[in-house]
Design a protein around this nucleic acid. Sequence first.
DNA 1: TACACTATGTTATACTATAACAAGTCAAGA
DNA 2: TCTTGACTTGTTATAGTATAACATAGTGTA
Lengths: 174, 174
Amino acid sequence: MTDHPHVADAVCPGCETPDLAFQAHDHAACASDALTRAEALMALRGLRLTPVRKRVLEILLEAHQAMGAYDVLNRLVAEGFGNQPPVAYRALDFLEEQGLAHRIRRLNAFAACMHPGESHAPIFLICTGCNAVAEAPGAAVVIALGKAAHGLGFAVERVTVEALGRCPTCEAAA
Amino acid sequence: MTDHPHVADAVCPGCETPDLAFQAHDHAACASDALTRAEALMALRGLRLTPVRKRVLEILLEAHQAMGAYDVLNRLVAEGFGNQPPVAYRALDFLEEQGLAHRIRRLNAFAACMHPGESHAPIFLICTGCNAVAEAPGAAVVIALGKAAHGLGFAVERVTVEALGRCPTCEAAA
DNA sequence: TACACTATGTTATACTATAACAAGTCAAGA
DNA sequence: TCTTGACTTGTTATAGTATAACATAGTGTA
């Protein structure tokens, strides 16, 4: 059990209750939860959470922060998996397609999704002070976006919403 | 005067009236307008729209679509400017900071802003069918985003909002 | 077993971006 | 006018991110 303030040691993407994104909580529990649900989901969809894929997901969950593809790759190499970029990218792409991980474009990085399976429209809050990344519920944002797009006759399929700013801790410090 | 359907020949980022984003209009006029306003803005701010910077802005305006930094660089080289990446990146970064251009992260590309100076919170609609990119007004989206973030104690400074989907033309074709 | 399908490993390369320093330009004040 | 300092550009070099293409190996099924 690892209780900690997310912002201090950098980043927890979302976690069980979204409004705890920037607060202390039992991360180990929500991480193992996410893994369990990921496995159930894959079984349900008839897809395989193979060793590489599972390990990549675990790495992201353990890391507890956004990681670059090459950081993930380095971890894989150390554990005897293939050591070329496609190994990491393929697993990361798979996880993203399945909604088990998210890509943070601003950081060229990936983060585990903490509530896979639940239909959600995540938005990401990136702290410029401590580099923490929080996954926040973005239903309202996505609805607003859908309306704006609809007005132009544009049919939205997927969205990227990322905000740069200051987390509570860094804001207080400044 | 070049009247054209934006989507057909790919992309017009915004243009004068936002709701014309995916419709035919006189692009040459709004482009030269944007350039004029850019120059006025720079004068107002006591900053210099140097030859490289101006040329890069023109290239983006003429291109009428999102361009990669290296595409811009190739154009610069052909015109006798420096031929190394920093030449393009510096100009593009400057233009972005000044709100004269936008970065489309999903495409690793840049597009001219069609209404510089006006305070606006642009969102980008990227068509997966024809690669058109439209700059749409995103005030409502940004407000929703601000609220969601505020609820978590997060102070938003800058946002990236990009939607992938189908423009009217491609949607109709399908 | 043979087959089709999926996943992984590997080679090679393409694309995107920035650090660091040298050289030139420009405007303002001595 | 000359100097100074800030800013801009050019250049070298390298770092970081991502994918195409093909070979190999595992998986489930007829």
